[in-house]
């Protein structure tokens, strides 16, 4: 592997040829918002539309997770155009996300809170009409809970479960606004094939999948 150098936000950065821009930037301390990216995933999902950057010589902004670095690449992560795209994508995600940080097990560890701070966007954004799912919390799995109202459909858990673990318990189902991450027959109670590998919960960027044990510790801490 050849070492190459590129410029991110006016700073020279060196990395390996073939690396993906998003991971190079994050590794070198340049935060680019993202929720769907997974290092293990060879073909990125590129579904969250948050990791836009501008690259010199490109006619329009591109997603950093789909971009392989090149020698002498000049990248800007915080231009007005980029932030406009990121804010729109982020506020669209928030329009279907049940914001209830005070009572959420992911509070202070949530990727959405981090992104809101970075983009200077309020979590209770009024820009788009809210489309709450209003689905019940599923507590039937022994290890974790699943709250579809918090899910941002990033697809991390689905990919890990199906493509990496070859289990296929969690899947996308339904379509359009009704689309969900769910299991066979819409209940975690009936999942016989879950191997309890814990990857899905570890990968969840928001409070949709949470370990039951963590919530217990949290409740005790708050009591």
């Amino acid at each position: 592997m050849k070492a190459i150098s590129l410029i991110i936000d006016n700073q020279k950065v060196s990395a390996q040829e073939g690396d993906i821009l998003l991971w190079v930037a994050l590794k070198n301390g340049f935060y680019i918002p993202n929720v769907c990216a997974l290092k293990e995933r060879a073909v990125p999902f590129a579904g969250c539309r948050l990791c836009f950057v501008e690259i010199e010589g490109y006619p329009e902004p591109v997603t950093a997770c789909t971009e392989t670095i090149r020698e002498g690449m000049v990248v800007k992560t915080k231009t007005a155009t980029v932030q406009k795209l990121q804010r729109a994508a982020f506020e669209l995600i928030l329009s279907t996300h049940h914001v209830n940080c005070g009572h959420c097990g992911k509070n202070k560890k949530c990727e959405l809170q981090k992104i809101a701070l970075h983009l200077k966007v309020r979590l209770r954004s009024k820009r788009f009409r809210l489309i709450p799912k209003n689905l019940p919390l599923d507590e039937s799995h022994p290890l974790f809970t699943y709250d579809p109202d918090k899910c941002v459909l990033c697809g991390r858990c689905v990919w890990l479960c199906r493509e990496q673990q070859k289990v296929g318990t969690l899947n996308f189902a339904y379509r359009g606004f009704e689309m969900l991450v769910t299991t066979f027959g819409d209940s975690l109670a009936g999942v016989a094939n879950c191997t309890q590998c814990r990857k899905c919960v570890d990968a969840c960027p928001v409070g949709a999948l949470l370990f039951k044990e963590e919530q217990l510790i949290r409740e005790e801490h708050n009591a």
Partner: peptide
């Protein structure tokens, strides 16, 4: 479920396709 066993695809994945 029968289709899942027959095609060796997880029932969940078939559920996802069918509901789409």
């Amino acid at each position: 479920r029968e289709t899942a066993a027959f095609l060796k695809i997880s029932p969940g994945e078939i559920f996802g396709v069918a509901t789409f």
